[in-house]
Computed example of a mutant assay.
Amino acid sequence: MYDGKTVELKSTITCPKCGHKKDEIMPTNACEFFYECKNCKTRLRPLEGDCCVYCSYGSVKCPPIQVGTGCC
């Protein structure tokens, strides 16, 4: 639960450089602005207009976006 709503916390991040996929658990108390690909070590940052790496590269958007409260 997040802000009284049920959210999905598991998101699969896909590296845009090498295509590597990794399941991650999203934090509910902070945004992740940086993420290092476990395969090629590329440091990912959110794309313009996105608030975090999960919104840009994840299979599921971050908890605040899921519940409609805007960016974290």
Rank of each mutant, 00 (worst) to 15 (best):
residue 11 S to C: 11
residue 36 E to L: 01
residue 72 C to S: 05
residue 57 Y to C: 09
residue 7 V to S: 09
residue 26 M to N: 14
residue 29 N to M: 03
residue 24 E to R: 11
residue 66 Q to W: 03
residue 14 T to Y: 03
residue 64 P to E: 15
residue 60 V to F: 01
residue 68 G to E: 07
residue 41 K to H: 09
residue 17 K to P: 02
residue 66 Q to L: 09
residue 54 Y to Q: 01
residue 20 H to F: 14
residue 47 L to E: 12
residue 33 F to E: 08
residue 24 E to A: 10
residue 58 G to K: 07
residue 29 N to G: 13
residue 72 C to H: 12
residue 23 D to E: 12
residue 20 H to N: 15
residue 17 K to W: 07
residue 52 C to Y: 05
residue 20 H to D: 09
residue 16 P to K: 14
residue 19 G to W: 05
residue 34 F to L: 11
residue 51 C to G: 15
residue 26 M to F: 15
residue 26 M to R: 04
residue 64 P to V: 05
residue 53 V to F: 13
residue 56 S to G: 02
residue 37 C to K: 06
residue 55 C to I: 03
residue 6 T to Q: 14
residue 43 R to D: 10
residue 6 T to N: 13
residue 26 M to G: 11
residue 18 C to N: 11
residue 38 K to G: 02
residue 38 K to R: 06
residue 65 I to H: 12
residue 38 K to Q: 13
residue 32 E to R: 15
residue 26 M to V: 08
residue 17 K to R: 08
residue 69 T to R: 06
residue 40 C to F: 05
residue 29 N to R: 05
residue 14 T to N: 01
residue 29 N to V: 08
residue 37 C to A: 14
residue 59 S to C: 10
residue 21 K to C: 10
residue 40 C to K: 03
residue 4 G to E: 14
residue 50 D to S: 00
residue 41 K to A: 03
residue 61 K to G: 00
residue 3 D to A: 13
residue 23 D to T: 04
residue 1 M to P: 12
residue 22 K to F: 03
residue 33 F to P: 00
residue 38 K to W: 13
residue 47 L to C: 01
residue 2 Y to W: 02
residue 40 C to T: 15
residue 62 C to Q: 05
residue 1 M to Q: 10
residue 5 K to D: 05
residue 63 P to N: 04
residue 29 N to W: 08
residue 29 N to Y: 08
residue 34 F to H: 04
residue 48 E to C: 02
residue 65 I to F: 03
residue 57 Y to G: 12
residue 64 P to A: 06
residue 20 H to Q: 08
residue 27 P to W: 03
residue 23 D to A: 04
residue 43 R to P: 03
residue 31 C to Q: 15
residue 24 E to Y: 12
residue 39 N to L: 07
residue 65 I to C: 15
residue 46 P to D: 07
residue 25 I to V: 13
residue 47 L to M: 15
residue 11 S to F: 05
residue 14 T to M: 09
residue 63 P to L: 01
residue 23 D to P: 07
residue 16 P to A: 13
residue 7 V to C: 02
residue 5 K to V: 09
residue 56 S to P: 11
residue 19 G to M: 06
residue 10 K to R: 13
residue 19 G to N: 08
residue 44 L to R: 12
residue 10 K to D: 08
residue 68 G to W: 03
residue 65 I to L: 03
residue 4 G to C: 13
residue 30 A to P: 08
residue 40 C to M: 06
residue 43 R to I: 07
